[in-house]
């Protein structure tokens, strides 16, 4: 079902982040040799949740368009699945990168649609995308090194 309200959008962001954080955790459990490398990524997800919630609870007022700020399809942003790890670690890291891309897209679209409607929220989304894109580059570099 199309996400339209701020509350739905924030809950969906939380779900994407939680699943990705758990996915990193599951990779680390299964392949302990990459645990330390992936730990900051899992922590990054937790920080994003905190940032988004802090911004939402800090700026939400009855006067902004909280009920009418998004038209987002959840299926456009597939989440990581911590219960379905692939056979090898390279593939797992590649899947994490795909999920990171998906979350970035979600935040970009959410920022674009809510600009001017949700006060400070789009700025937070933009900032998260910047941070995540940098992390994604690191993840891809790590994946490339692993494959080599």
């Amino acid at each position: 079902m199309t996400l339209r309200t701020a509350s739905e959008g924030i809950s969906f962001a939380r779900e994407l982040e939680t699943r990705l954080g758990a996915f990193y955790g599951a990779i680390g459990e299964r392949w302990p040799e990459v645990r330390d490398v992936l730990a900051p990524f899992a922590a990054g997800s937790a920080k994003c949740i905190a940032d988004v919630q802090r911004a939402y609870y800090g700026v939400i007022t009855d006067a902004i368009e909280g009920g009418f700020c998004f038209e987002l399809e959840p299926t456009d942003y597939p989440a990581a699945d911590p219960s379905a790890l692939p056979e090898d670690v390279e593939e797992a890291v590649a899947q994490a990168a795909v999920a990171e891309e998906s979350i970035c897209r979600f935040y970009e679209d959410a920022a674009e649609q809510s600009r001017g409607l949700l006060a400070d929220m789009p700025r937070i989304f933009d900032r998260i995308v910047l941070r995540r894109r940098a992390a994604l580059a690191e993840l891809k570099a790590f994946a490339a090194k692993k494959e080599a």
Binding site: T5, S7, Y57, I60, T61, D62, A63, I64, G66, G67
Partner: peptide
Amino acid sequence: KTIDESRGESRR
């Protein structure tokens, strides 16, 4: 009221 509206009211 909706939960977004209520949270907005709480903040205000």
